[in-house]
């Protein structure tokens, strides 16, 4: 290991610019992914908040008969995703409104008639709160003639999902593009290092060093370049986050495990790039 490490470090000193550019390209690739990580993580937080409620509210027509309502309740209780269906009468709704909106209790109290409709509050099972499930349940309820309107807070959720998929696509394209460039540059760096060490490599093969031993310094060089790139990306992402979160809007920082995962991804990218270059340029007997 000491030999490989020394040789890998020598390679950095021999071509510091190339090593720097390699690391920067990996950093750029992962920085894009890091920014997306922040967006995705925050969107996920919002969605989790909405999902935690996991609730669909069906406002009933005043004309709906108790038998209609009972039939609907019965139907919904039979749906697999539904945990609980609660009937909220018009009186109860008014009562809740008076309690929750005490400032307006005077207004409500002075009304001759109750303006609020009766409703069914449908709670979903904990593992059935995904957007697709919520939407399909809501559509099913909405199709019932006794129901006037369905609310499930998804009007804007759809927009959030759209935003996320657009961001994911852009990130995928940009991140992959930079990753390919990074692989090519690391390949060039490794090729240069192989060329600079061709005499040593020939002697190593002559005296019986294993292929693994001969390749190790180059893989190590790739690993270190990649880890360096990963750390630069984490730093750049964090700086962008710090600037954005106070000036524009409040977002949460991604979990530490994502940061570590990103840095390790950089290392893996570097190793893969060197491996490809070593396979191509290091002729073994």
């Amino acid at each position: 290991m000491t030999y490989s490490l020394r040789e890998a470090l020598v390679a950095f000193r021999r071509a510091p610019l190339l090593a720097g550019v390699s690391a920067a390209m990996i950093a750029l690739s992962l920085f894009v992914v890091g920014l997306f990580g922040i967006v995705a993580f925050n969107i996920r937080k919002v969605i989790e908040g909405v999902e935690a409620r996991g609730e669909v509210v069906a406002y009933l027509r005043d004309t709906a008969s108790p038998a209609d309502v009972q039939a609907l309740r019965h139907e919904l209780t039979g749906v697999a995703a539904v945990r609980e269906v609660r009937y909220v009468s018009r009186e109860e709704a008014l009562q809740v409104a008076k309690e929750e909106l005490s400032e307006f209790s005077a207004v409500f109290g002075s009304l001759d008639s109750n303006p609020l409709p009766a409703s069914l509050e449908v709670r979903l099972k904990p593992n059935q709160k995904g957007p697709d499930v919520v939407r399909s349940v809501a559509q099913r309820i909405g199709a019932n003639p006794a129901v006037e309107e369905v609310r499930y807070g998804n009007e804007w959720l759809d927009k959030v999902f759209l935003l996320r998929s657009v961001a994911a696509t852009a990130t995928g394209v940009l991140g992959a593009g930079f990753a390919v460039v990074a692989i090519l540059i690391i390949g060039a760096a490794v090729r240069l290092a192989i060329f600079a060490r061709r005499e040593e490599i020939a002697i190593m093969q002559l005296v019986g060093a294993t292929n693994w031993f001969i390749r190790k310094p180059f893989l190590l060089e790739g690993l270190m370049t990649g880890l360096l790139g990963g750390m630069l990306a984490a730093l750049a992402t964090w700086l962008s986050y710090s600037v954005l979160t106070n000036a524009v809007f409040t977002v949460v920082w991604i979990p530490d495990s994502w940061v570590v995962g990103g840095i390790l991804t950089g290392g893996a990218l570097g190793v893969v790039a060197s491996w490809i270059a070593v396979r191509r340029h290091l002729r073994v007997a």
């Binding site: 002559l206 019986g208 294993t210 007997a285």
Partner: peptide
């Protein structure tokens, strides 16, 4: 195999 070639070469001075 490649690994055996490496080991064999340790037994061959050149």
């Amino acid at each position: 195999r490649p690994r055996e070639i490496a080991l064999l070469r340790r037994k061959i001075g050149y």
